[in-house]
Simulated scan of single mutants.
Amino acid sequence: MRLTLLGTGNAAGMPLYGCNCQYCFSARNNQDLRRTACSARLDMGDITILLDAGQLHLADSYPSGTLDAILLTHFHPDHVQGLFHLRWGIGNAIPVYCPPDDEGCADLYKHPGILNFIPKNEFSSFSIGDMEITPLPLNHSKNTHGYFFQGNGHAVAYLTDTKGLPLATEQFLSSRDVDLMVIDCSYVPDSNKGGHNNLNEVIEIASSTQPEKVVLTHIGHDLDIWLQQNSAELPPNIVAGYDGMALQPGPSDG
């Protein structure tokens, strides 16, 4: 099992439009410092699953037949915007698993094209190949799912967007051995903004659920700067994700 973080930014991304701070200046001039729309790709054997579709130009990155499924956490635009072009393709339908949401986003339901939207209820496990997938409820302004993946003896939790965790999700994760948790962390420590975790909240979640490793994603502008200045203050099992980061659960994680 291999998880690649395609994007690790919040909706605004990094660099922040109109900001002339030294960190945004550096990100404009160094591709490695940019943060694009939060999404990931999970590969296991010959199965490839896209987690959220906020990245643009998906048709260029994933030629027809290379995606086995897309899993949506929710229908906010920064997590589905790549679908608006992809849907007009031809060929086999692409399964798109998602939370139940009567509205969806714009006209995706009305004109799905090759996208086959498949709503899944929370804790209703299903399989793709040899991978078992369990949708987990999260705390956000739209109906939102995290996903718990089991396969090849490993367990991965992908949890964005959320503010804390619902008790049922926390209990589910606490009762399992989680090799890798990738989790929403948008704000600096002690921030009182809603909708997304600050760093203190992620540390509390990690303490209560005890994953082997935690990787931060959906990182906002101010937290990005804080991390560049204070990365040594992170607990030893928590690291900041970055675009293109490849993660392999277990001892060979990198």
Rank of each mutant, 00 (worst) to 15 (best):
G220H: 02
H74Y: 00
A27I: 07
N29I: 06
L42H: 00
D43N: 13
A157F: 06
G113H: 00
V80A: 09
M245I: 09
S207M: 05
Y242I: 08
R87E: 08
G104R: 02
L56P: 01
L86P: 04
V239F: 07
L42W: 01
H140F: 15
L86V: 03
N121G: 14
I183Q: 03
W226D: 04
I128C: 02
A11W: 12
S127F: 05
K120Y: 04
S191P: 07
D177K: 13
A240S: 11
L16N: 06
G54L: 00
S61K: 10
P77S: 13
T134E: 06
K213D: 10
G82M: 05
I238H: 08
Q228F: 04
T4R: 14
C21M: 04
E204P: 00
C185G: 09
P251Q: 14
G13W: 03
G113D: 01
C105Q: 12
M131A: 12
A155Y: 08
S191D: 14
L71M: 10
V202T: 10
L72N: 05
L67F: 11
D102C: 01
T162N: 04
Q229R: 14
V178P: 11
P249E: 01
S231C: 07
E233Y: 02
Q31D: 12
S124C: 14
G113C: 02
E233S: 08
M181T: 11
S127L: 03
A11D: 15
E122T: 11
P135V: 02
L42R: 00
S252A: 15
D60G: 13
P63H: 00
R176T: 09
N152E: 15
T209N: 05
E132N: 15
L50E: 09
F123N: 03
T217E: 07
A232I: 13
I205M: 04
Y242A: 13
D224P: 03
A232W: 14
Q228L: 04
R34I: 03
I128G: 02
A246D: 10
I47L: 01
I219H: 00
S127A: 13
A168P: 00
Q81I: 14
E170Q: 15
D224M: 08
V182L: 11
I128A: 04
S191N: 12
H74M: 00
F75S: 01
A40H: 03
S125Y: 07
H218M: 12
M1Q: 10
D32W: 00
L56W: 02
A11Y: 14
G129R: 07
P211L: 14
E233W: 01
H145Q: 03
A93T: 04
K110I: 08
N237C: 09
P251M: 12
G18E: 05
G89T: 01
G9V: 02
H79L: 02
S207W: 03
L223C: 08
S64Q: 09
N139I: 11
R34G: 03
S191F: 03
D222Y: 11
P249I: 03
D253A: 15
N139M: 12
W88C: 05
K120M: 12
P249M: 05
